[in-house]
């Protein structure tokens, strides 16, 4: 064992590379070729630093990067659905144009406003955390949770209507009627919507509708849980202007949920024209 070390250390002494070994060797302990030990760099930082990090800054940078990589995986997750949507919309544009008016632009617009408003309150909550204002943080987190709940309530009203209209894809009597009002697609008028082929295509649209909004709704639900956890922690005075990484990370997540909806809204609600009904 000792022989190995000696040989290694000797090896490092005879290097001819451009690295500053020889210059450093007086002051650094070498062990093995090319590595030195520095003492004192493990000084404990401020509070809330996990043992594997050197500084709170490093921990924050790691959390931030980790969160963004997670969001990149989320982009790909929803990306699979969007790919399927793009393919089938390109194949069956007229059926899709006939299907999207079944989504009420009224509810869709309300929900869009709810989500972008909640994004604003979330951003303001992060700002309150950054400035160490606990009261405002509590308030804005509360607003965000409330708006998320509004979103889910509206979504469940929509789901109920869809089930009543036989648009649930698991239903035996799935049947898509021709929507009232004008369809923004010249070919849509020619489509015989009662044929099995067209009903199959309509079912593909609603398959995508239910799964995409379902997965998005699931994300909203998770968001509510996370935000509530933040709220409870804030009431227990966990966060301060020195430590609020969880607030910021949850904020990123929440903005992402908003982001997905920004694309879902036009694709699922508007591409046959905005139809206002409740």
């Amino acid at each position: 064992m000792a022989d190995t070390h000696a040989a290694q250390a000797a090896a490092s002494g005879t290097t001819t590379t451009g690295t500053p070994t020889s210059a450093m060797s007086g002051s650094d302990t070498h062990f093995g070729a090319g590595y030195a030990v520095s003492a004192g760099s493990t000084a404990h930082g401020a509070h809330a630093r996990a043992h594997q990090f050197d500084t709170p800054q490093q921990q924050y940078a790691a959390s931030n990067l980790g969160m963004w990589i997670f969001l990149a995986t989320e982009v790909m997750t929803f990306g699979g659905f969007f790919l399927a949507y793009i393919v089938y919309r390109a194949l069956y544009p007229e059926t899709f144009a006939l299907a999207s008016p079944h989504q009420s632009a009224t509810w869709g617009t309300i929900n869009t406003f709810a989500l972008i408003l909640s994004s604003l309150t979330m951003a303001l909550a992060v700002h309150a955390a950054q400035t160490g204002n606990r009261r405002r943080l509590t308030m804005f987190l509360g607003f965000t949770i409330a708006l998320a709940c509004v979103f889910l309530v509206v979504k469940s009203i929509e789901y109920t209507t869809h089930i009543e209209e036989n648009l649930w894809i698991g239903s035996q009597n799935f049947h898509m009627e021709r929507p009232a009002g004008e369809i923004v697609d010249p070919e849509a008028a020619r489509v015989d919507l009662d044929s099995t082929v067209q009903q199959g295509r309509a079912k593909i649209f609603f398959f995508l509708y239910w799964t995409m909004t379902g997965l998005h709704g699931f994300h909203v639900l998770i968001g509510i849980v996370l935000l509530s956890a933040l709220l409870i922690n804030n009431l227990r005075k966990v966060y301060s202007e020195n430590y609020y990484t969880p607030v910021e990370m949850t904020g990123l997540y929440w903005h992402f949920v908003d982001l997905v909806w920004i694309f879902l809204f036009p694709l699922l609600y508007l591409l046959g024209g905005a139809h206002w009904h409740i």
Partner: peptide
Amino acid sequence: EEQPVVLHGPHHYTRKEVTVG
């Protein structure tokens, strides 16, 4: 046991043979 500091490129060997310990 202490925080290592890296001074060399990877896989840094010299011509000198190292025997098994």
